[in-house]
Amino acid sequence: MKNIFINPGQLNKLSEFLSPWLAIISFIFLIFGLWLSFFYSPIDYQQGNAVRILYIHAPSAWLSMLIYSFLAINSFFGLVFGHVTAFTLARAAAPIGLTFTAICLVTGSVWGKPMWGTWWVWDARLTSVLVLFFFYIGYIIFLKSFSDFTKGEKFSSILSIIGIVNLPIIKFSVDYWNTLHQPASISKFSSPSIHIDMLIPLIVMFLSFLFLFLYILILRFQAELIIRKININNMKFYKDS
């Protein structure tokens, strides 16, 4: 088991096997989730049918934070233990996290215009999510801005570990400060402040997005592994000549 995390070849083989399954599971959840969110879910007593935006907004927000933790943890293991797999997984995860953060920001904005009366405000929650977006961009730019790719990996890993302090700020911003953004509805498991008929589509959509993330992660992992091979080959070539 331990070998899987150290030896990228093993994970690569496993990912070839997993890839179609993840795609199928994600797709099934997606169809089911879309049906739930458009036909099964009742309208909200205040928001009307605008509540349906929640079913893509909240899962992508959760994923943007989950993927960032994944990125930072992998960067940590990459830095400390020098595992190629960890570095490659972090590399592969970054664009996916960036996309989910963008989706979270845009759908939130589209919800905010009719509900709050504004596209954007600079309150603590919205600003800290925007900072998360910039951390993703910074990570990707750092990766690509060194001719020696291992150097870029090191710097961007440090950046991503620094960015982890932003996650608790995002999570607790709505509780500590007065914000326009509402506090979390599902923070208490015993009695969430969201009706069960709205909770089910939310969770199904989250599962769909989660499997979609794993599918794209594996896809990009394979690509990044090949790119790494090419890069190492090039470096050897320059050293020899």
Binding site: V106, V110, W111, P114
Partner: peptide, 14 residues
């Protein structure tokens, strides 16, 4: 009110 346009915009972007 009906917010179909906003829903359409959000889902299609996503």
């Amino acid at each position: 009110k009906d917010y179909s346009i906003y829903i359409l915009a959000a889902y299609s972007f996503c």
